[in-house]
């Protein structure tokens, strides 16, 4: 009861605007110069967020803007507008994506206000959230989880490992409908991508 009352007394903690994060955020070139990027995220002067691990090796030639890294939503599904159930699957993470993904449920972010929920089985899931680099034994698990999901379904690649393999390995062999770069992506960029994927505001 104590917890309940105190919870009420603290008021609403959910935020509309989130504080800026420097790393990871959209990078822009602020100086001329040669950069030795460990993941080839810089090719012909173009910065590719899908390859960037935000290691700061390119600093100060490239510098962070503080703007949340933009996710690519290739396909959204209007039928998930009111409720969007996610099943996360870790195919070989460092734990960072797992934790940032968990934090979209924190009171500051509160995913449920957008009708986003987690489920404990892919059989009830609308979207599969894939995190990490591909590891041999998880390949079959990933395929089983995908097969177990009902149609329509979305695949969300979360974090640079799942998108391009990052610095540690190869990405999982699955086509992503939503691609969220970042190492790890911030809860803000995850939340924005999810809301867009469910055709929300």
């Amino acid at each position: 009861m104590n917890w309940f009352l105190r919870g009420i007394r603290r008021g609403i903690l959910t935020e509309k605007e989130f504080p800026q994060v420097q790393w990871p955020s959209e990078l822009h070139r602020s100086k001329e110069g040669e950069v030795k990027c460990p993941t080839d995220a810089l090719k012909e002067d173009r910065w590719d967020p899908n390859r960037c691990i935000f290691c700061r090796a390119c600093e100060p030639i490239l510098s962070p803007t503080g703007r949340s890294v933009q996710a690519q939503v290739k396909r959204s599904e209007p039928s998930f507008r009111r409720s969007f159930y996610l099943y996360p699957i870790d195919v070989g993470t460092c734990g960072g994506c797992n934790l940032e993904f968990r934090l979209i449920a924190s009171p500051q972010h509160d995913m449920t206000r957008f009708g986003i929920f987690l489920t404990n089985t892919p059989r009830h899931a609308d979207a599969l959230v894939v995190m990490g680099v591909m590891t041999p034994k998880m390949e079959e698990v990933l395929r089983r989880a995908y097969d177990a999901m009902p149609e329509p379904k979305l695949v969300i690649l979360l974090g640079v490992c799942a998108v391009s393999g990052g610095i540690l390995g190869m990405p999982p062999d699955i086509r992503g409908d939503v691609v969220i770069p970042g190492c790890p992506p911030t809860p803000e960029s995850i939340l924005r991508a999810l809301v867009e994927a469910k055709s929300g505001e």
């Binding site: 699957i89 892919p122 059989r123 698990v141 990933l142 089983r144 097969d147 177990a148």
Partner: peptide, 12 residues
């Protein structure tokens, strides 16, 4: 009706 294997946590 959709027939799928029971979800055995992906272990098979």
């Amino acid at each position: 009706v959709r027939t799928v294997d029971p979800w055995d946590n992906g272990s098979g």
